[in-house]
Design a protein around this nucleic acid. Structure first.
Ligand SMILES: [Mn+2]
Ligand SMILES: [Mn+2]
Ligand SMILES: [Zn+2]
Ligand SMILES: [Zn+2]
Lengths: 129, 129
DNA sequence: CATAGTATTGAGAATGATTATCATTCTCAT
DNA sequence: ATGAGAATGATAATCATTCTCAATACTATG
């Protein structure tokens, strides 16, 4: 049999797919519980892993221990994390492609993915400091 | 009082400072134990944190859950991790500076640091597959 | 030199995120 | 209906890391 899109996975997918947030497992469980359809935490983790494997959501690691998920389909981007307020800003720059190209040419490696996280103070937190 | 460079911290520093590896706490404890001077695990973690705060070693996060440390003083670089053999390759590219410049100019953020990890198959693992 | 006041240590408990177990329930194609 | 393979939920278990706390080790003064 194949992977199934169960009601709980649908709930997770709908939540992530209809927002631009970067969700962690706990946040998802929390919101779903508040919405009435609470799911066992193990099921949340398994559901997230399954949905990611299917390419329906995208998982990222923001150096804070917990894995986050965002909806799939957005164009490639990296993340800036404000260490003061925790806000996450997406960004991208064409030069990144050159870096990958150079890296694989120099080393002969095949690149499968990457994680580029920049941190500091966002504009408003910079002023407030 | 000030931070002290105790014998156990010196041992950790010497280990990291004299190699080009990317050590995790467990690896350090293991090697030091094998060398006769075993240290409590809490002390290893505290020592690493202290040495990092003093700028004597540099901590990095390679998306695998455990924090790694390398000797300070090496020029800036990022890391390529082979997901097949686990080898870590260092690289750098001048275009990265442009990305930061662009990001801070566009968003008004102050950048304090970053973590750029690329993963895939290294040259030898690519052939072997 | 005695001594108060910090820093550090080590053993072990505790934490937080995630995964593994396992018995039960669900689904789908015969 | 039925049996094999998925999925669920409650709970135990992992893993890296941090916390607690009693015992030491240093340091700066008096
Ligand atoms: Mn994003
Ligand atoms: Mn390095
Ligand atoms: Zn901020
Ligand atoms: Zn390799």
């Amino acid at each position: 049999m194949k992977k199934r899109l169960t009601p709980q996975r649908e709930a997770i997918l709908k939540l992530i797919g209809n927002s631009d947030q970067h969700w962690d497992a706990e946040g998802i469980a929390h919101v779903l519980a508040k919405m009435g359809c609470s799911i066992g935490q193990a099921t949340v983790y398994r559901g997230l892993a399954a949905l990611e494997k299917e390419g329906l959501i995208r998982g990222i690691q923001l150096v804070d221990g917990k894995k986050r998920y965002e909806r799939a389909g957005k164009q490639h981007h990296d993340h800036f994390v404000c260490t003061a307020c925790g806000s996450i800003t997406e960004f991208s720059h064409p030069a990144e492609a050159q870096i990958f190209e150079h890296l694989s040419r120099e080393t002969g490696a095949v690149i499968h993915g990457h994680e580029f996280v920049v941190f500091g103070f966002c504009a408003s937190c910079r002023e407030a400091s």
